[in-house]
Amino acid sequence: MNISIILVRPRNPQNIGAAARAMGNFGLSDLRVVDPYEPVWREAVSAVGAHEILQNAKWYSSLKEALFDADLVLATTALKNRKINQEIVSLPDISAYLKESGSENCAIIFGPEKTGLSSEDISLAHCVLNIPTTAKVPSINLAQAVILCCYELAQTESSARGAKFKKPSFKEVEIVQNNITKMLAFLDLPPVLGEKVRSRRLAELASKRMLDKEDLFFINSIVNKIISAFIFGTSYNNSSKFIS
Rank of each mutant, 00 (worst) to 15 (best):
177 Q>C: 08
190 P>D: 07
13 P>L: 12
199 S>G: 07
147 I>E: 09
49 G>N: 10
120 E>G: 07
23 M>Q: 09
53 I>F: 13
235 S>Y: 11
233 G>Y: 02
164 K>T: 12
235 S>E: 08
152 E>C: 02
68 F>L: 00
116 G>M: 03
54 L>T: 06
30 D>W: 02
21 R>H: 08
20 A>C: 09
1 M>R: 11
185 A>M: 06
223 V>C: 04
148 L>N: 05
21 R>L: 11
183 M>H: 06
75 A>H: 07
82 R>M: 05
213 K>R: 14
113 E>A: 08
48 V>R: 12
28 L>V: 08
10 P>T: 07
30 D>A: 11
18 A>L: 13
123 S>P: 01
216 L>G: 04
227 I>D: 04
205 L>W: 11
88 I>G: 09
171 K>A: 06
75 A>P: 08
115 T>K: 09
212 D>C: 06
127 C>F: 05
154 A>F: 14
63 L>H: 01
199 S>I: 03
114 K>G: 00
162 G>R: 15
32 R>Y: 04
3 I>P: 04
229 A>Y: 08
39 P>V: 08
84 I>G: 09
104 E>G: 03
129 L>Y: 07
42 R>N: 12
134 T>D: 14
196 K>S: 13
18 A>S: 14
43 E>D: 14
155 Q>K: 15
190 P>M: 06
15 N>K: 10
50 A>S: 15
231 I>R: 15
236 Y>N: 12
23 M>D: 07
136 K>V: 12
228 S>L: 10
32 R>D: 04
160 A>R: 03
56 N>V: 00
136 K>S: 08
172 E>G: 03
114 K>E: 12
187 L>A: 14
8 V>L: 07
56 N>K: 15
198 R>T: 02
178 N>W: 00
135 A>G: 01
